[in-house]
Measured scan of single mutants.
Amino acid sequence: MQVTWGNVTVTFSNPEEAKKYAEKVARKLGGQVELHNGQFRIK
């Protein structure tokens, strides 16, 4: 499962870890987490 924002992509084998990481990054950037085609995207 991947977490992407800007031109950065981070890949996780565990979807739960990916979700936690995406939420943490979104909080830092003041963005929203979207699940899109099996990727968490931060907008």
Score class of each variant (00 low, 15 high):
1 M>N: 09
39 Q>H: 13
16 E>T: 10
41 R>A: 07
40 F>I: 13
28 K>W: 15
36 H>I: 15
23 E>M: 09
17 E>A: 14
5 W>T: 04
16 E>R: 07
3 V>T: 01
20 K>V: 12
16 E>D: 12
40 F>Y: 15
21 Y>C: 13
7 N>H: 09
19 K>W: 13
18 A>C: 06
10 V>R: 08
33 V>P: 03
3 V>K: 00
7 N>F: 08
41 R>I: 15
14 N>E: 08
37 N>Q: 06
35 L>W: 09
35 L>Y: 14
19 K>E: 07
17 E>Y: 08
2 Q>F: 06
36 H>R: 10
20 K>G: 07
2 Q>W: 05
17 E>W: 08
42 I>D: 02
8 V>Y: 12
18 A>I: 01
5 W>G: 02
22 A>D: 00
5 W>Q: 02
8 V>P: 00
14 N>T: 13
28 K>H: 15
7 N>R: 07
4 T>L: 12
7 N>Y: 08
25 V>T: 06
35 L>C: 12
25 V>K: 04
6 G>M: 06
12 F>A: 01
36 H>S: 10
32 Q>H: 13
28 K>G: 07
29 L>I: 14
31 G>P: 01
21 Y>I: 03
39 Q>W: 04
8 V>W: 10
27 R>D: 07
12 F>H: 01
8 V>E: 06
5 W>R: 03
22 A>H: 00
13 S>H: 11
19 K>C: 12
6 G>W: 11
27 R>T: 07
25 V>G: 00
37 N>A: 05
14 N>Q: 07
14 N>D: 13
1 M>V: 14
41 R>L: 15
28 K>I: 15
12 F>M: 03
13 S>A: 13
10 V>L: 12
37 N>F: 05
18 A>P: 00
30 G>S: 06
3 V>D: 01
3 V>G: 01
6 G>A: 07
5 W>V: 14
41 R>N: 10
21 Y>E: 02
15 P>N: 08
24 K>V: 10
41 R>E: 10
28 K>F: 15
9 T>I: 11
28 K>E: 12
12 F>V: 02
21 Y>F: 15
28 K>C: 15
36 H>C: 15
11 T>V: 10
16 E>I: 11
3 V>I: 05
34 E>G: 03
34 E>N: 04
25 V>N: 01
20 K>M: 13
35 L>E: 10
11 T>F: 13
3 V>E: 00
37 N>G: 07
11 T>W: 14
2 Q>A: 10
30 G>K: 08
7 N>E: 11
8 V>Q: 07
11 T>P: 04
3 V>P: 04
10 V>F: 08
32 Q>K: 13
22 A>V: 04
39 Q>I: 13
1 M>G: 06
31 G>R: 04
35 L>A: 07
5 W>C: 15
2 Q>S: 14
12 F>Y: 03
37 N>M: 05
24 K>L: 13
29 L>H: 07
29 L>K: 03
14 N>H: 07
32 Q>L: 12
3 V>Q: 00
6 G>N: 08
8 V>K: 08
22 A>W: 03
33 V>H: 01
29 L>Y: 11
11 T>L: 10
27 R>I: 10
30 G>A: 05
37 N>Y: 04
34 E>S: 08
27 R>F: 08
16 E>N: 09
18 A>K: 00
24 K>Y: 14
35 L>D: 06
28 K>P: 01
31 G>C: 12
25 V>P: 00
20 K>Q: 12
23 E>H: 09
31 G>M: 09
16 E>A: 12
26 A>L: 03
7 N>L: 06
41 R>H: 14
37 N>K: 08
21 Y>M: 05
6 G>R: 05
41 R>G: 04
26 A>D: 00
41 R>V: 15
25 V>W: 09
12 F>S: 00
40 F>W: 14
15 P>C: 14
37 N>T: 03
12 F>D: 00
6 G>L: 09
8 V>S: 06
20 K>E: 13
4 T>D: 02
21 Y>A: 04
31 G>V: 08
20 K>W: 11
26 A>N: 02
26 A>V: 05
3 V>F: 05
10 V>C: 15
9 T>W: 03
42 I>L: 02
15 P>Y: 15
34 E>R: 05
22 A>S: 03
19 K>G: 05
4 T>F: 08
31 G>H: 07
26 A>C: 05
9 T>E: 04
23 E>S: 06
14 N>R: 07
40 F>K: 02
13 S>M: 10
25 V>L: 13
1 M>F: 15
41 R>S: 07
21 Y>R: 00
25 V>F: 04
15 P>V: 14
11 T>Q: 11
42 I>G: 01
34 E>M: 07
42 I>W: 02
41 R>C: 15
13 S>V: 09
24 K>W: 15
29 L>E: 04
27 R>K: 14
9 T>F: 05
42 I>K: 01
32 Q>V: 15
30 G>D: 06
9 T>D: 02
40 F>Q: 02
13 S>C: 15
28 K>M: 14
25 V>D: 00
11 T>S: 12
18 A>Q: 00
18 A>Y: 01
39 Q>S: 11
24 K>G: 08
33 V>E: 01
1 M>R: 09
28 K>R: 14
32 Q>P: 04
38 G>Y: 04
20 K>R: 14
30 G>Y: 05
42 I>F: 02
35 L>P: 03
41 R>T: 13
34 E>D: 07
31 G>D: 03
30 G>N: 10
9 T>P: 00
21 Y>Q: 02
36 H>Q: 09
26 A>S: 05
13 S>Y: 08
24 K>R: 12
41 R>D: 05
36 H>W: 10
9 T>Y: 05
29 L>M: 12
36 H>K: 11
25 V>E: 02
29 L>F: 11
39 Q>Y: 07
5 W>K: 02
18 A>M: 02
4 T>A: 10
26 A>Q: 03
31 G>A: 11
37 N>L: 06
32 Q>S: 14
22 A>L: 05
31 G>Y: 06
26 A>K: 02
3 V>H: 00
13 S>K: 13
30 G>T: 03
16 E>Q: 09
34 E>T: 09
15 P>I: 14
36 H>D: 11
13 S>T: 13
20 K>P: 01
